[in-house]
Design a protein around this nucleic acid. Sequence first.
DNA 1: TGAATCATGTAATAGGTTACATGATTCT
DNA 2: AGAATCATGTAACCTATTACATGATTCA
Lengths: 187, 187
Amino acid sequence: MRTMKTVTLLGYALLGLLHGKLASGYDLRKTFTDTPMGRFSDSPGAIYPALRGLEERKLIVSRSKDRATLRGRRELSLTAAGVAELKRWLSSPVDQADVAGRMGDLMLRFAFMDGVLGEIATLTFLYSFAQALRTHVPTLRKYLDDHSGHMSRSGRLALESGICGYESQLEWVARAISVYEGTENSK
Amino acid sequence: MRTMKTVTLLGYALLGLLHGKLASGYDLRKTFTDTPMGRFSDSPGAIYPALRGLEERKLIVSRSKDRATLRGRRELSLTAAGVAELKRWLSSPVDQADVAGRMGDLMLRFAFMDGVLGEIATLTFLYSFAQALRTHVPTLRKYLDDHSGHMSRSGRLALESGICGYESQLEWVARAISVYEGTENSK
DNA sequence: TGAATCATGTAATAGGTTACATGATTCT
DNA sequence: AGAATCATGTAACCTATTACATGATTCA
């Protein structure tokens, strides 16, 4: 993992987890092992090289507690550049391709968003998320209508499953919006 | 992609698409480009090496149409071993980890299943899929109940989104089961 | 014949997986 | 002191991505 040219999703997950708090690589691994978070490998071969890459790009810094031993716990924290990169990622527009193939990325962004960017930005994100879903679902429906004749029954059902998933996600987004709008009003 | 030791998900997608019909690498690429299928890259750098790997493992064979030129369309088809490997994959049990982190694999299997294994096997698959979902959802709910106190609002909502997704999937499985049971009865 | 598209390929690179190795700390 | 677990690392391998290259076919 020399000189990553772009930060990977795992990289952003690590940045997000480090926002506002210190943690060691081990702590971050445990997060992946013990919580439903992300869907990232907890293997050291994934995390430590990724952290090294973030450090090389000066997005995080590490401090060996007391003595400068080679082994032993190292506390990691975001640099100003790390916070900026995290915010840049969280702020990037929701596009159709995200909804069609990278919903996991969107949900990861959402999970960090309100703590990092605040409620207004989160609401804006949810609005464009909903919009992208409302655009995407009819596309799939149209495909289903046009092709259901020469699709196998299970192929048809599989596509319907996808559509249902997006619709369920849209319902969730609507609920999330109402939660955030409620809070916003009450402030 | 020398001597793949295991067939990847892309490999199985290709085997599934080749079941019962001939196609070229280009045809397969077009399937990924033009349909909502899978969520696989249509890049030649992914598909041709994968096809080469399947050919080396004798799961598919290729025939250059007439003349033995190096370029030009090559029709691919499954070997007996390819069909067997596809069936083996489709028949493998649904485990908790599949539901928790590889739902896409399960849906891909489902999409091919009824054409390759038939209705009885598909129903069996759906039953165990439903069972795995019914086991998994309470696990997530419990996590949410136990930890919602010290989770951020957006973290909480993100987890709820996951739970809703699984519940929606479970509803879909129930509907698919009723479709298959209906057919089975009427035969 | 030239342009478009059909059709296949490869090289460089990146980053994850698996498996292993090993030092540090804590608890009994 | 020994075991468990905390904590970090690395090497081999595999596969996807990106970008490029190029031959074949079709059709205006």
